[in-house]
Amino acid sequence: MKVTVTVNGRKIQEEIDADLLLIDFLRNHGCMSVKRGCDTSNCGLCTVMLDGKPVLSCSVLTARADGHKVETLEGLQAEAEEFGAFIADQGAEQCGFCNPGFMMNALALFRENPEPDVEEIKEYLAGNLCRCSGYEGQLRGILNFLAWKKEGRP
């Protein structure tokens, strides 16, 4: 089947197999930030934005993205650098493999709720597993980032 998907602002028209998962379509098109951690929608590593909403790309058929916009971390580099620096300043990126999915979902959280409290942060990001950090460093990074944002230093 033929699909048209806008990936990070670039329109891609392609003939695809009907069973092609969005994660594989995106990686085939160079979006290597999109990672596969589990196959069962448990880990959150493959999170991308579909029309601005976070989805698990391992559980979405490419066909469902036909006519829609997809964003990956490759398309959000400025935001990733700005927020990611706060994670880096904690050393909380560790192995880094879960980082892209975590970054995507965190950015989605900040768009939906610019001033989340600790409980809201934990709940929103509960589906993003990380085996290295124990999550505390990620939380410190997020809180420092939010405080920095609030101080009006964009």
Partner: peptide, 17 residues
């Protein structure tokens, strides 16, 4: 508390694996 040398590549999802 030095930042990890690869930190920014990892948080921005660079293709390194």
């Amino acid at each position: 508390p030095v930042r990890k040398k690869d930190a920014m590549s990892l948080v921005t999802g660079k293709p390194v694996y």
